[in-house]
Each structure stands twice: as C-alpha cells, then as structure tokens.
C-alpha cells in the first residue's frame, strides 16, 4: 500500500528520472566514453557548486518563494574568501566560517524583509543580487588565486582520510580523484537537505507553507521563522558553493556564476518542484542537476557542437516540464 502511494506521488519525479536515464543512455550510445566511471564522477565534481546552490534553491522554491541572489552570493563568497586568506592573512578555517555566516545572515535579512513587509521575493532577491555582485567587485575587480598550503590539504582530504584508514595508496589516489572534497561537500549538503526536508518538522513546515500558506498558518505553522529560515539556508548554500568554488579552483572570482540562479531554478523545476511551491523534492533537484550535467558534458565532448546547445536543450526541457506541470495541476 505504501509502495503504491510512493510510486503514485512520485509521478513527476519518475518522469524526470526516466528523462535522466534516457538522456544518459542516449548520450552513451552516441559517445561510448560516456559509460566510464570518471565521466559519471565528473558529473558531480564539475557541478558541485551547481548542486549545492540548487539544493538551497529547492528550499526557497518549495516554500513558494524564489531567490535570484544565489549566483552573485556565491561569487561574492568566493572572492571574499580568497581575499581574506590571501590579502588579509586570515586563518582559512575562520575565513570559511565567516563567509558562511555572512551568506546565512544576508539570506536571513532578505527573508525578513520579504515576510515582514510583504515585499515580492523577486524584487528583494534581485536587489540582493545586485548588492552581492557589487560587493564582490568592490572587494576585488579580478580573480584572486589562493596559495594557502592548508587549501592543498583540504583538497586532498578524501584521499588522506582513506589512506589513514589503511587503504592502498593508489586506490586512495584514484578515489580522491573521482570524489574530491567538492563532491563530498555537495553530497553532504544534498543528504542534509534530504533529511531536513523529509524528516524534520521544519522541513514539513516548508512544504506546508508552500502548499497553502493560509492553511498552514491556521494550523499553527510558524510562517515567519520558516520563511526567514529558507532564505537563510539558500544564502548559506550559496556561500558554501562559493567556498567549494575556491576549493576546486584555488581562486576566487567576482565575475563568476552569472546566470547560476536561473540555471538552478531550471534544474529545480525540471526536477519536479512546482515553482509555486508545495510539491517537489531535493531528489528531483539532484536529477535535474544530473540532466544538466549530462547535457553539458556530452556537448563538451562533442567538439563540433556549440556550448549554446546546453542552454537551448535545458530551455526546451524546462518548457516541456512547465507545460507538463500545468497539465497535471489542471487535472487536479
């Protein structure tokens, strides 16, 4: 009985999963290299930043809002971190914590404004995006490289941990290559979000507010704190993404991650989450990100193709899913 419901409820998710698998298989048929472990691992490691941001965005969209500031916040976080470490000689650990706290705080402020003054999330987060981007460029006009030795260690963390557990050196090296710190963090963020959304009161409150804010309030759900929290989480995830950016590229870049917010919104919607909120899951977001990754990786591998096709295919998928959602909602 439970299984039936799980299956039925996962309708849109199932469609996304099917599309994902189909795309993967199709890509693999056209490009046999696709079926290799390193490519699959590459999905995650090349898109760790994307996944983290999309996970944060899922919270916001589920609650019925939207956050346009995440790309700018990620860029700002990355450059702030780079400058703190390189130019102000901060301890990397403190710097990371500081940047994360900043992201959470800014997100929380936006959430507060949105809720208390009933401002449209679109505009407030748009302003936040401008501010974050401006802040990033004010901190530094160009990208800044990080030469901090601790960073090397962090980058090498998975391999080191495995070695410490007595794993063969070569194997540890290989696994460390496939699963760098960035990927580990991304997976951790995903899992944390999954647990939070599915198994905590807060997570269920997020769904409630997105599903029907009026009913939720009448049922006693604390709307204010929930809404502020989702934006704080999104901001925190964006900051985390910026941190991961520095970990992968050993630099911070204020001009990076333009359009990241749109891409993550697209991934969330393709993943089966309604833009109006209340329905969806991070699992869907993961699938959406994977679809993105498959498309982009494949296009990169095919020399002849313009990278613009990624945008077009994603846009078309997005359209298809939006129309699908509309048809489903109409039936209900």
């Amino acid at each position: 009985m439970r299984a039936i419901h799980r299956v039925r409820r996962a309708g849109p998710l199932a469609i996304t999963a099917i599309v994902c698998i189909a795309l993967y298989v199709a890509a693999g048929i056209l490009e046999p290299d696709f079926f290799s472990m390193s490519i699959v691992a590459g999905f995650l490691s090349n898109h760790a930043v994307f996944l983290i941001v999309a996970v944060g965005m899922t919270f916001v969209i589920l609650s019925g809002g939207i956050d346009l500031s995440v790309g700018a916040t990620a860029a700002c976080a990355s450059i702030a971190l780079a400058c703190l470490i390189e130019r102000s000689s901060w301890n990397p650990a403190f710097a990371i914590l500081f940047v994360l706290a900043g992201g959470v705080l800014i997100g929380g402020c936006m959430g507060g404004l949105i809720h208390s003054c009933r401002l449209p999330p679109f505009i407030v987060t748009l302003g936040g995006m401008f501010i974050a981007r401006g802040l990033a460029f004010t901190i530094s006009r160009e990208s800044v490289s990080i030469h901090e030795p601790m960073y090397e260690q962090i980058y090498d963390l998975p391999a080191s941990v495995l070695r410490a557990f007595g794993v063969n050196d070569a194997t540890a090296e290989r696994i460390g290559f496939l699963l760098p710190t960035a990927s580990v963090i991304a997976i951790a963020a995903f899992l944390a979000a999954l647990v939070m959304l599915m198994r905590t009161r807060f997570g269920r409150n997020v769904y409630a507010i997105g599903g029907s804010e009026q009913s939720a309030i009448l049922m006693g759900v604390p709307a204010a704190s929930t809404k502020i929290a989702v934006y704080a989480i999104s901001g925190g995830c964006a900051a985390l993404a910026g941190v991961v950016h520095t970990l992968s590229l050993f630099s911070g870049d204020p001009s990076s991650h333009v359009m990241l917010e749109l891409d993550s919104i697209a991934a969330v919607v393709i993943g089966g989450t309604l833009l109006s909120g209340g329905i969806g899951s991070v699992v869907g977001t993961l699938l959406g990100v994977t679809i993105f990754a498959i498309i982009e990786t494949w296009i990169t591998m095919r020399e002849g193709l313009n990278s613009a096709w990624t945008r077009i295919i994603v846009g078309t998928l997005l359209l298809a899913f939006i129309l699908l959602q509309r048809a489903l909602v109409r039936r209900k």
């Binding site: 749109l262 833009l275 313009n306 990278s307 077009i312 994603v314 846009g315 359209l319 939006i322 509309r326």
Partner: peptide
C-alpha cells in the same frame, strides 16, 4: 496556455541566449 508569467518568460530567458549563441556559433 495560462502559464505563470514568471515561468513562461524564464524559459525564453534561459533558452534564448543559447539560440543567440548558436546563431553566431559563440
């Protein structure tokens, strides 16, 4: 089709630039 304006125009926003890039081969 009655799609929400935010979503509907988001599609073109994402895909449109890709179309432009395609036309000019980047």
């Amino acid at each position: 089709l009655g799609v929400q304006p935010l979503m509907a125009t988001l599609v073109l926003m994402v895909a449109g630039r890709g179309v432009a890039q395609l036309l000019s081969d980047g």
